[in-house]
């Protein structure tokens, strides 16, 4: 996944900010910050691609509702596991069945 340009709003150590420092009204001071919220932990199954079978058709990339298919130079390069929810849509739509859903927690 393409690296997001750094936010101007410095949120370093935000979990430990005191009440005088937190933004008024809980407003999130800068838009476009969803990439910083790692939601991959919700996943119970993860997609794994077999690049031997993959034809780089990018149908998985079009269909992934979470923009979690990583593509570089028109090649499918795997998954953004920080944000992939494990919904299995990519595996379902892949024409050569190159994506397999594997249970989480069984391996590292």
């Amino acid at each position: 996944m393409a690296e997001k340009t750094k936010m101007k709003w410095n949120i370093k150590d935000i979990e430990n900010w005191g009440w005088k420092k937190v933004p008024m009204g809980a407003t999130i001071q800068e838009a476009g910050n969803a990439a910083y919220y790692k939601t991959g932990g919700w996943r119970t199954e993860k997609p794994v691609v077999d690049k031997e079978k993959c034809t780089n058709c990018l149908i998985c990339w079009i269909n992934c509702p979470d923009a979690s298919i990583m593509v570089n130079d028109t090649k499918m390069e795997g998954f953004d596991y920080d944000h992939c929810k494990g919904c299995g849509i990519c595996a379902k739509v892949c024409p050569p069945k190159a994506i397999e859903m594997q249970p989480e927690g069984g391996e590292d």
Binding site: E15, W19, V22, G25, A26, T27, Q29, E30, A31, N33
Partner: peptide, 23 residues
């Protein structure tokens, strides 16, 4: 200057908001 209004605040953030409101 786009911002997000009225977001969800988990236990790590809620209390400080209420303390600020009190002030």
């Amino acid at each position: 200057d786009p911002k997000t209004f009225g977001p969800f605040a988990m236990p790590a953030y809620y209390f400080e908001q209420r303390r600020q409101l009190r002030a």
